[in-house]
Design a protein around this nucleic acid. Structure first.
Length: 237
DNA sequence: CGTTTTTGACCTGCGC
DNA sequence: GCGCAGGTCAAAAACG
């Protein structure tokens, strides 16, 4: 092989790599925009709920995006599963259950017991609109790390009747499902997504940006994304 | 037998 | 002040 043809080869390869990177950026940009528009939709939906409903429930719903108060997450679960448990990486002890007026399904009350002095609580009930979705409302902040309770042991092992790693964001938005399962055994992606879903903050926009940045910096994610793009290209051709 | 869950009773806050 | 609804307590039951 002469030096001229090897130069050409290198240039060709660089060109291909550039193209792959460009496609990756394009895909990430699209995903980011989709996330933003979904988030906007959720905000608007919740604002309209707050305007139309004077019930206390509406006040709970308004909180996640506008204050440090309750964060809500939506988890798809099997209708046959009556346990009202949401696996989120922490350990919870149930201390009560109530039938509420606005919802025929019972609401369960849990306290965090991952750390002895953690005062975080959560309420779990089925969505009124879609009984297959569990709504978990979190109150307070954990004073310990989620890694106190390793994911591999408890949180993301598929619970009975719960769709594996499927966290749904937004009440009437069943199509917006953040797939936590991703490829194979790599749990760092799950952790990224899990953190994103869990941490309620006044500035969700910044959180998304942080989340995307952390994904970009993750070499495993880049490899996985590159594989996905490659698959997508080979499927199109 | 220790831990967790269940469930009825009790407490508290809010609206009328 | 009263009634209602949500939240918590704690004893009993269930479970591993």
């Amino acid at each position: 092989m002469d030096s001229h043809s090897s130069k050409e080869e290198i240039l060709k390869r660089l060109g291909k790599e550039n193209e792959a990177l460009r496609l990756m950026l394009e895909v990430m940009s699209r995903k980011y925009n989709t996330l933003q528009s979904h988030l906007q939709g959720i905000k608007e939906e919740q604002m309209s709920i707050n305007l139309n409903e004077t019930h206390k429930r509406a006040r709970i719903l308004e909180a996640p995006f506008y204050s440090n108060k309750p964060l809500q997450i939506f988890v798809r679960s099997n209708l046959d599963d009556n346990s009202l448990t949401v696996k989120d990486g922490y350990q919870w002890r149930k201390y009560g259950q109530k039938i509420t007026k606005h919802n025929s399904s019972p609401r369960a009350y849990f306290r965090c017991c991952s750390a002895p002095d953690c005062k975080v609580k959560k309420k779990v009930e089925r969505s009124i609109e879609d009984k297959s979705i569990l709504v978990a409302t979190y109150e307070g902040e954990h004073n310990h790390d989620i890694h106190d309770n390793p994911f591999s042991q408890t949180s993301l092992s598929t619970p009975k009747g719960v769709t594996k790693g499927s966290v749904v964001a937004g009440g009437n938005n069943p199509e917006l499902t953040l797939d936590l399962s991703l490829s194979g055994s790599d749990q760092s992606h799950r952790r990224h997504t899990e953190k994103f879903v869990q941490h309620g903050s006044p500035s969700n926009h910044n959180k998304i940006k942080e989340y995307v940045d952390s994904l970009v910096k993750d070499p495993n994610f880049t490899v996985a994304l590159a594989e996905a793009v490659a698959r997508s290209i080979s499927n199109q051709t």
